[in-house]
């Protein structure tokens, strides 16, 4: 860190001729500096490689430190304090690990982790299978391939808020004029209150179909890109070897060829699911603050930015969640062999 600072100083022109650089830092470039004007020296320094590096990278780095590293450090600091409605707690508010203990024994927080687990168990395999299936079908079709790709990708333009609006107010409306209830009505089934309560938990159907609709096309694009990387001669060789088309070539050529992409898609879907917030907030009653469908982020939002802004417990919860994501990602990466090259 001190090294970085020294370098930054030598890279930026100082206020006066003498104070711009420390005597040690500039020995290489500053030979014969006494006779050269300030302007010429600044000009030369701006043209040098070290200076160029800093005016390319410096602004971004400063912002990254300011808006990512500082907040994370500050939050870690707050997690050890009783920081209700304040971001600068006094020394006597130090509570040690009490916030972590409180979050880890908080039935609501633990239940939100369970809600997430349930959500992931539904959405991860379904999204994976659906996007792979779409990619295979679109890649196989010979007419209007670009049209199909566009149609399946178009929902990605919609925000979760917008989709929640359509799902809640038109498709899965709990009264007779909702689309699904209308269709059910044609078969003599009475209207179902999709989003009202946990018994039976119909809301999972609403939430899962919504996320599937938005995400599937995105992952389909990734799979199509990967499918086109599989060399055609492998299929020809399989033909020569007498492999049966369809199932055999799928399991022995297509799927192994998609391994790296499959792993990436599984991890992306899971990480996205961890951060689910928008649709739960907008679909469920009371801004998602209901025990049966409260995701970790919704709970953290209500904890740290609700009526009581408990930033200490909120920060502790955020750190626990971040740690959990890191562990699961590492574990999944180990199991699935993330980062290995495409192919067998």
């Amino acid at each position: 860190m001190t090294e970085t600072e020294t370098e930054t100083e030598t890279g930026t022109p100082g206020p006066g001729p003498g104070s711009g650089s420390g005597p040690g830092a500039d020995t290489g470039a500053g030979a014969g500096r006494s006779g050269v004007s300030w302007r010429a020296r600044v000009g030369r320094r701006l043209g040098s490689r070290g200076a160029a590096f800093w005016y390319f990278v410096g602004p971004f780095l400063a912002g990254l430190v300011m808006f990512t590293y500082v907040p994370v450090a500050w939050s870690a600091f707050l997690s050890f304090f009783d920081a209700r409605n304040t971001v600068t707690p006094a020394a006597e508010d130090f509570v040690g690990f009490a916030n972590f203990a409180s979050m880890l024994t908080d039935a609501n927080f633990l239940r939100s982790l369970w809600t997430f687990t349930l959500f992931a168990a539904i959405i991860v395999p379904v999204t994976f299978a659906a996007s792979l299936g779409l990619a295979l079908a679109v890649n196989r079709v010979r007419v209007a391939r670009a049209f199909f790709r566009s149609v399946f990708f178009l929902p990605f333009a919609c925000s979760y808020v917008l989709a929640s609006l359509v799902w809640k107010m038109s498709i899965f409306t709990g009264v007779h004029y909702g689309l699904v209830n209308t269709v059910l009505g044609w078969f003599g089934v009475g209207p179902i209150a999709w989003l009202n309560g946990n018994d039976p938990p119909w809301f999972w159907l609403v939430i899962a179909t919504l996320r599937l609709w938005i995400q599937c096309g995105f992952y389909m694009i990734l799979f199509i890109a990967a499918l086109q990387q599989i060399p055609e001669h492998l299929y020809e060789a399989a033909y020569v070897d007498g492999a049966k088309p369809g199932r055999q070539t799928f399991w022995h050529i297509t799927l192994p060829g998609l391994r790296a992409t499959s792993v990436a898609v599984l991890m992306l879907v899971l990480i996205q699911a961890y951060q689910a917030f928008d649709e739960f907030w907008n679909l469920l009653p009371n801004s998602g603050n209901v025990p049966y469908g409260r995701t970790p982020l919704v709970y953290l939002f209500h904890t740290s930015l609700g009526t009581v802004q408990d930033l200490g417990r909120g920060s502790a919860g955020a750190l626990i969640l971040a740690l959990l994501i890191a562990l699961v990602t590492l574990f999944q990466g180990k199991v699935l062999g993330f980062g290995k090259p495409e192919g067998r």
Binding site: M66, F67, T68, V70, P71, V72, W74, S75, L78, V87, I271, Y274, Q275, F277, L297, L300, F301, S304, L305, L311, G314, S315, A318, L321, A322, I325
Partner: peptide, 13 residues
């Protein structure tokens, strides 16, 4: 660090 996790600390800042 998933960006959504940092919303509490970022809000603080």
């Amino acid at each position: 660090v998933p960006s959504a996790i940092t919303f509490v600390p970022s809000f603080v800042l």
